[in-house]
Structures are given as structure tokens and as C-alpha cells.
Design a protein around this nucleic acid. Structure first.
Lengths: 340, 340
DNA sequence: CCTTAAAACCGAAACGTTTCGGTTCTTTAG
DNA sequence: CTAAAGAACCGAAACGTTTCGGTTTTAAGG
């Protein structure tokens, strides 16, 4: 391994100047910079990261901590997240470490040890919950992080999010505009922030149109086809109050809803209209539904590059407005809604 | 951040002794070791990895490089692998970095840059193929690695594997012992080493019993239920030569086979017997088949701790026999085989 | 009580980089 | 021609650990 010292000897320059040349500082002449670059390439010089880390205190490493109940998160989704993040950071020359904690371990302890001994520069936090302890801890320890999502009323940190309020609002409003009045909402896991935000959008659209709220029409649960099926069927338990339309928080839930409606002998959209939010997960195309599903759409995969950029900026101490981003979304009409 | 120096001051010991105490060297008295441990805990001391790395020349980081076609590998399986490895290494105080390469990128270049600039200590290689380029490259660069699997006739490196020959052999032999003579094999993707090894075991069992080989009875393909269904139905295209038993390389394939047999109006085990290898993936229990599936079993999850240990040993330069491991397996009789 | 061996300890160097606080050389202004 | 300013460079310290090559203390043997 060639070191800076080797280079400096070879170039008859001080180690200082070689270092500064390679890092493009401004008190090195252009000529020298080029000479150094050339020699570095010639001698196949590679900076020793460990040394650099020791002296700068930065590791270039970012991390994601996932808790043991990895089975709770759909494997499909987990794969997407892991893959997307890893790829985005890899492309930017950062190392992405994945830290899987044991069952029942204290997650905050894991963060602590990662920060203190592995010298991690920053974290990505996924699936934030209301009052997320991780966020509080990292703010407190002043460690950079970016949240994939947002906690309502508490947004003094870096995040990438989609407009979940609009998801709930626009889908519901779309149905209201077409004459629907009893609209059910099959939402995701109860304590997730995006689930809450979507519920608020749903409620706002209903009350904005002067429609009554019915608590029994909003159902939280896993984002899985099986959960959608069960919830959907339960919606029709007392058929005098059955909904004429269903909003699904996710396309997998919609698969369940379609199956449930079919089992009940109800047709989409003639008997019941269905709309959903589409993350564009591979293997679950809204177009391959029969009839094709009307959706709001933001590809999940769109988020990884921004997240990597936002975290890099956050690590570099950029101001708040440069480390927050809300992705816009499209509403795509297909054939799953009937105008009453 | 507490450092060794802080500790030594607090304990009125030299930095040397503190370091040696924490690393359990043998010229430190037991009493001192305990005193140091206690103080370290009290002052919340965490070793600074960067410094340790610099002086030892080791980064403590291990990596897994996954290629873009992450969708080819079942998400279910990918999740298991990533999770298991990450967890095993996390528990051992190593950082596990996941490097996802872009589409069509040169994987070997990715290894090169990871080795040279990130200072990675070693790699895990999963899903090896016959004549795997990664293995050749890493051997050539003298970078430690451990293979999850094995390449036949070329085993001068660290690996963890199960006895795939035995999987093919024992399942086939089990059927032969019960009077079956036309035995099909739904195997995995063609160029994978474990697929080949299982095929060899299958062939050996057949020829060992003096039975004829029929090329059309061995089918390679994806390890998915859909692939199993299709292959299974094709097996019965010409019914004069239909198999009386099917060996499946994987429990998901067996799900497909069960579905295919059902569709063809054939009963398990009365018309056709089925056996499979079981990796014990969550959500695919052999016991929940009807009838319950007879399998050879090695939990996939059993491998991650040994893999982490083997790689650690390999990094420490342990001799070949200490860095290779073949896991034994169980054959569990359930109700999916009929004695002819 | 002295000698020797073993046990316990310690100072200082080393790892490869960045950066602080200079110095030297060149150019420009008066 | 001199003073000042700016450009280009450099030595040495620092980061927190491990480890080499000792020294001191304790215990054992005679």
C-alpha cells in the first residue's frame, strides 16, 4: 500500500502539500495538483480510510437499523427499501451498513454503540411512528439522520416524504365528486405516521363535503392482501350500512378488497368502487387488476436518491430547508370507479 | 467520548495496561481486569474503531455485494439472507455493509473499489455459480471471503454449505426404498452449484439402485410456486411415462407441485408421492401441507452464525480446515409418500 | 537474606491522515 | 529599491489505539 509519505518522497514535496493537493485545497498551485494526481494514479495510491476517519471524525458510513420483527414488514417491501437505499448510497461513494438488532433488544442501545464505536456519520429512519423514540434520541445526541416519512407537528429534522394527507384527501374527494357518500378506508398499521396523515386527509375530504363520519368505516391493519380481504368482508357485515366505495392505503390491500368483494358476489365498480394508493411495487401493477385500479401514485423507488442526498447534506450541516422534501403525486384514473 | 487515556487517568493505570486489560491479554492480573471492566462500563467507554482500525490494519467491516437483478432472487429469500447475515455480524461487533450494484455494472469493479477505498476486511459470497468470477477475483487479490455454498472440485477457500449431494441422494433413495422407480426432480436454477450437487445425488441414488435415468424427469427452473406448478404439469404431459414420485428442491416448488397435481386430479400420496428439501422459511411450513410434506431439513437461518464465524477466522488467517463447514441435515417423515 | 523467575506493569513509538501555525519565495505598489 | 501582500509550501502535532521492549514488584528457592 502506497501512503502519502511514499508519494511525498517520490514527488519531493511535503506530506502536507500532497494531502492538500489531493483534497483540492486552494493553497496548492494548479501545476502541483496535477503532478500529484498523476503520481497518485501511477503509484496506485488509495487513501487509508481508517486514518482519515480517525483524524476527521467522519467515517463516510451511514446506517439503517432494523428491528428484529423484520417479518412484520412485508419481505417484498423490505427488499425494496434495503435495495434502494443501499444502491443510492453505494452510487454516492458512501458505505451503507445494515444493522439488524436481536429480538427484544433495546434499539437505542444499538444506535448508541453504532455511533460511538463504529463512528457512523448518519442514519436513515424508516417507518416512523408517532412519538418516535429514535428521532428523539438522535436529535438529543446530535447525530445526523433523515426520516423516510414525517411525524406531524414536529418537523425540525431532515425528511423525505410524500403528501400523505393528499393521498387520503384526493382519493376520497375523487369518490365524493362522483356521488359516493358512504366511503370506507382500509388503512395501514395504526401507529404509523403516514397512516394517520392519510386518515386526516380522508376525514377532511368527508367533512369538507358535509358528509357524516362513521368510525366503523376506517379500518387499520397490516398492509397485506389477507388483511384487506378480512377487513373488506367485515365492512359488509351489516349490509344496511354498506359502503359504496372503498379507499385502500396500498395496492396489496386493494388486492384483498377485490378478492373480498368477489367472494361476496359484489362487482367492481358496478356494486362497489375501489381506489388505492400505488407505491409501484414490482409484481403488483394497478393495470393488471380487473377492472384496472384507479390510484394515486408515487413510486417508492423514487425516494432513495433524494434520501441519500438529503442525508449527505444533513451530515454536512445544511440548513433545515435544504434537507426536507415532499414528493408530489399523480392521480391516475382507470376503471374501478362508478359515478353514481 | 471517553478514551483510553481518560480511563487510565481515572484508574491510575497506564494506557497500555488498560488496553491490555480490555483485550484480555495475559499479563494483566485478574483483579485489574475486573477493575478496568467496571470503570469502562461506568464511564461508558467505547473503543474508537477508527483508531483501532488504523493501528491493526483491519476495518472490522465485512460486505456483501448484490447485483442489480435483485428481483430474480425471491424477496422472501433475499430478506432472510440479508437479515440473517446482518444480524450475525452485528452481534459479533462487525459492521455489515450491503453494496447494491447498478444494472449491468461490472461487479468485480465494485469489489475492487470496496477493497481499496473502504478497506473492507472480507466478503460473503452467496449463490455461487459454477466457475464463479467473484471467487477467482478475490482469491487473486488475496482478500478474505466465505462462500455460502460450494463450487464442486474447487474447494480451496472458506465456505459454509449443506450436503446438497445428500439432499438429492437421500430424498431419492427414500423413495426408491419405498418401491418408486420413476422419480422426477424439480430442481432450482440451472447454473447454481447446489442445484448441480443435488442433481448428482439424485443420479447417484438412481444408478446405485440400478434404475434407468430419464433426462426429461429432471427439470431446472426458478424456485417459485408458479415454476413448480408449470413443471409439475408438464411432467404428466405423456401419461404413459408419468412419474410415481417427485423430489422438489425447495418447499415453494412443492407448493407448486401440490397445486399442479390437484389440478390434474391426482392425489398425494395415493397417486403421486412428493418429497422436498425444506429451508424452513417462515410462512412455508411443511406441516401445513395437506398431506404434511416429508422433507430433508436444514434451516437456512442456521447458517448465518457459522458464516460470520468462518469469515472472522478466515480474516484472522486460520488454516483451511477451520474455515470450512458442511451442515448436516435431518430427514423428517410426514405423510406425503406412499409405499408401492 | 540473596538470587532468580514470574507476574504485573509502563513509556514511547507506530499506524496514515489532516490541519495549525508558521516560513519562504514571488509579485506588486509606491 | 523597499515594503507589503499574496502564493506556495512545510514541520509538527493531533486523532485513539495497539504493541514492542523494557522496568518494577512479588513470590519462590536455597
Amino acid at each position: 500500500m502506497t501512503t502519502l509519505k511514499d508519494l511525498s518522497r517520490h514527488l519531493k514535496l511535503s506530506v502536507t502539500q500532497v494531502s492538500r493537493a489531493l483534497n483540492d485545497h486552494d493553497d496548492v498551485s494548479q501545476a502541483t495538483k496535477e503532478r500529484v494526481q498523476k503520481a497518485a494514479k501511477l503509484l496506485n495510491y488509495r487513501v487509508n480510510m481508517s486514518a482519515k476517519r480517525l483524524v476527521t471524525g467522519r467515517s463516510g458510513i451511514v446506517g439503517l437499523v432494523v428491528e428484529q420483527d423484520g417479518d412484520v414488514l412485508e419481505p417484498q417491501l423490505f427488499t425494496q427499501v434495503i435495495w434502494g437505499l443501499s444502491h443510492a448510497f453505494s452510487e454516492r461513494g458512501r458505505q451503507f451498513i445494515l444493522h439488524a438488532t436481536g429480538a427484544g433488544g433495546d434499539v437505542l442501545r444499538e444506535y448508541e454503540s453504532l455511533i460511538d464505536s463504529a463512528g457512523i456519520d448518519g442514519f436513515v429512519i424508516t417507518e416512523p411512528t408517532l412519538n418516535d423514540r429514535r428521532i428523539a434520541y438522535l436529535i438529543n445526541r446530535k447525530v445526523p439522520f433523515v426520516v423516510h416519512g414525517r411525524v406531524p407537528d414536529h418537523t425540525d429534522y431532515a425528511f423525505y416524504d410524500i403528501d400523505n394527507f393528499a393521498v387520503g384527501h384526493d382519493l376520497t374527494r375523487y369518490l365524493i365528486d362522483r356521488g359516493h357518500q358512504r366511503i370506507a378506508f382500509l388503512n395501514g398499521p395504526a401507529n404509523r405516521t403516514y397512516v394517520e396523515a392519510r386518515r386526516e386527509g380522508y376525514v377532511a375530504a368527508l367533512t369538507g363535503a358535509g358528509l357524516a363520519l362513521d368510525q366503523t368505516l376506517h379500518i387499520t391493519g397490516d398492509m397485506a392482501a389477507t388483511a384487506g380481504l378480512v377487513s373488506c368482508i367485515r365492512l359488509f357485515d351489516k349490509d344496511n350500512v354498506s359502503p359504496t366505495a372503498i379507499v385502500c392505503s396500498n395496492i396489496t390491500l386493494a388486492e384483498g378488497a377485490y378478492a373480498g368483494l368477489k367472494a361476496l358476489g359484489l362487482a367492481v365498480p358496478d356494486d362497489v368502487s375501489v381506489v388505492a394508493h400505488d407505491d409501484l411495487l414490482p409484481g403488483h401493477a394497478a393495470t393488471s387488476f380487473t377492472p384496472p385500479l384507479t390510484t394515486t401514485m408515487v413510486p417508492l423507488s423514487k425516494g432513495w436518491p433524494p434520501i441519500a442526498d438529503l442525508l449527505s447534506r444533513e451530515i454536512d450541516g445544511a440548513p433545515l430547508e435544504q434537507v426536507q422534501m415532499v414528493e408530489s403525486m399523480d392521480l391516475i384514473e382507470r376503471g374501478s370507479v362508478r359515478t353514481l
